[in-house]
Design a protein around this nucleic acid. Structure first.
Lengths: 165, 165
DNA sequence: CATTGAAATGTTATAATTTAACGTTTCCTT
DNA sequence: AAGGAAACGTTAAATTATAACATTTCAATG
């Protein structure tokens, strides 16, 4: 299985974002085919909309976009698609923002840390073994069996801390 | 400053919970005095209600309890008290549950991991340096400056994984 | 090819969570 | 005692999410 990282952490504002979207969609096709899950046009379109930026997007923002498409959509339409995409590992829910984010490393499952820049709003996804091991160590200390984790870090990205914009 | 851990991780069902509540309230008095913040009767009562268990509790559950007290409360009353208590480091918001949890280590700020047992619902709060260092390491890798973090782990606690209940 | 059952989507309504805005009261400071 | 800020009350509404049921699509099977 080809494992290609779609976008680096905090891509430059001038990066070729269309390529990110294309790659995300292609990867989604692959992932769904492998898992025998149906990436319907609606789900595909929702994923595409999620990928319109490297920022978490709310369900209702996605809904607005669908309506702009001319789609007579309602909230459950969006939530169902998001549910499917999350189960497929293609989208993360950002708990601290009630928002959704395209996952660029589906093979890592949801075992990642999400770094959210307070200034630009962009997000970087990092699968860092040090964090995972730290969590495992903590869990061991109290005899806890880990099933899923939420790791969301707020702060400022390199570009936004460095520059005097 | 006396730094006493109120409750151990996943306390036994038979522990003296009244002592947990007493200690939490006493600690709150101390913390607020130190910070020059006013722990009013309402805020104190909300904190007491948050501490009715070692489980996260929703804002509306707290509201119901206040109403049971005979208090003619509305949602903003609860949310304002919770905001105060969170700023004071006495309460955590559990992002993955939209719920609130008494903090038993206020001096650690919100720099902790929260382990949530899916079976019993109880929560353990752990300030583990391995997790913090893992996050710092990840942040360093991408030049990110950490301001705040959310670490919430779901799984099963020792008692619930071990026993055949 | 027709049938049929499951999956997906449409549709309506509502629940659950949170905040805005403004008025009133309390209480500390002077 | 007066003034002003903080706390709290009250009304309304925004935001986020789900329940429940109807309809359509689709793939498998006969």
């Amino acid at each position: 299985m080809a494992r290609k990282t779609i976008s680096t952490a905090f891509p430059s504002p001038r990066h070729d974002h269309a390529a990110c979207v294309d790659e995300a969609l292609a990867q989604a096709e692959r992932v769904c085919a492998e898992q025998g899950r149906r990436l319907t046009p609606l789900r595909r379109r929702v994923l595409e909309l999620v990928w319109q930026s490297h920022r978490p997007v709310t369900a209702y923002a996605l809904l607005e976009r669908l309506v702009q498409d001319g789609h007579r959509a309602q909230a459950p339409t969006v939530y169902r698609s998001l549910e499917f995409l999350m189960e497929s590992g293609l989208v993360h829910r950002v708990e601290s923002m009630n928002a959704y984010l395209g996952c660029n490393q589906p093979w890592h499952g949801h075992d990642v840390g999400i770094f959210i820049c307070r200034v630009c709003g962009d997000v970087a996804e990092l699968s860092d073994t040090a964090i995972s091991r730290g969590i495992e160590r903590g869990a061991d200390r109290i005899g806890f069996t880990v099933e899923s984790r939420v790791v969301e870090i707020s702060g400022t990205c390199r570009a936004c801390s460095g520059a005097c914009n």
